[in-house]
Amino acid sequence: MVQPSLISYSFNSPPQPALLDVASISADHILLLDSYFSIVVFHGMTIAQWRNMGYQNQPEHQAFALLLEAPQVDAQIIIRDRFPVPRLVVCDQHGSQVSNFP
């Protein structure tokens, strides 16, 4: 049986395992869910709003750009090394899923 894993990314700590529970959802976190056949990158509401405003493109917000990049890089590593290739879903809190995220 495949055990799903959930990793939480935030400004306050390095990536760390999170409980597979709704309590892990936070507006200022990014979650990476690996359920073997699907990889989900979930952006909390505040993170999604900042990304949509383009903060990651401003030099003074380099830490935010790195925070956005980390789960994407980790997801690509998982996808590259797995067969069958899992489906990547990128979504935002209170939003819909997107397969090809910029």
Results as ranks from 00 to 15, higher is better:
Asp74Ser: 14
Gln3Cys: 05
Leu19Trp: 04
Leu32Gln: 02
Arg87Gln: 14
Asn57Gly: 04
His43Ser: 07
Ser96Met: 12
Leu19His: 12
Ile77Thr: 14
Ser26Ala: 15
Ser38Asn: 14
Phe42Ala: 00
Leu31Asn: 01
Pro17Met: 09
His61Phe: 13
Ile7Leu: 04
Val85Trp: 06
Pro86Leu: 10
Ser24Met: 03
Leu33Ser: 02
Gln93Ala: 09
Leu20Cys: 14
Gln72Gly: 11
Asp92Ile: 07
Tyr36Ile: 11
Ala63Asn: 13
Leu32Tyr: 02
Met45Tyr: 06
Arg80Pro: 06
Ala65Lys: 08
Ser96Gln: 13
Ala70Pro: 04
Leu88Val: 11
Ser8Met: 02
Arg80Gln: 15
Ser5Tyr: 01
Asp81Thr: 13
Gln62His: 07
Tyr9Thr: 01
Tyr55Met: 07
Met53Thr: 05
Asp74Val: 07
Ala75Asp: 13
Leu19Ala: 15
Arg51Trp: 10
Ile77Pro: 00
Leu88Met: 15
Pro102His: 08
Val2Lys: 03
Asn12Lys: 14
Pro71Gln: 08
Arg87Ile: 14
His43Val: 00
Ala48Lys: 10
Leu31Met: 03
Val73Trp: 09
Leu20Thr: 11
Phe101Ser: 12
Val41Tyr: 01
Val85Gly: 06
Asp21Pro: 10
Arg82Ala: 05
Asp34Lys: 04
Arg51His: 11
Phe101Glu: 11
Phe42Thr: 02
Ala18Phe: 02
Asn52Arg: 12
Met1Val: 12
Gln58Ile: 09
Phe64Met: 05
Gln97His: 11
Asp21Val: 11
Pro84Gln: 12
Ile79Tyr: 09
His43Thr: 02
Ser13Trp: 00
Val41Pro: 03
His29Gln: 12
Ala23Tyr: 05
Pro102Asp: 10
Arg80Leu: 13
Ser96Pro: 04
Phe42Asp: 00
Gln97Leu: 07
His43Leu: 12
Pro14Gln: 07
Pro17Val: 15
Leu31His: 03
Phe101Ile: 05
Asn12Asp: 08
Val98Tyr: 08
Arg51Asn: 09
His43Phe: 12
Gln97Asn: 08
Ala63Ser: 12
Cys91Gln: 15
Gln93Val: 04
His29Ser: 08
Pro84Asn: 13
Ala27Ile: 04
Ile39Tyr: 03
Ile7Asp: 00
Gln56Arg: 04
Asn12Pro: 03
Leu6Ala: 00
Gln76Leu: 13
Gly54Met: 06
Gln56Thr: 01
Val22Met: 05
Ala75Ile: 10
Pro4Met: 01
Pro14Arg: 07
Tyr55Pro: 02
Ser96Leu: 12
Met45Phe: 06
Asp21Ala: 15
Gln62Ala: 07
Phe101Lys: 06
Ile7Met: 03
Gln97Cys: 09
Gln76Ile: 04
Gln93Pro: 08
Gln72Tyr: 11
Ser24Trp: 00
Ala18Pro: 01
Arg87Ser: 12
Pro86Ser: 09
Gln76Pro: 07
Gln72Ser: 12
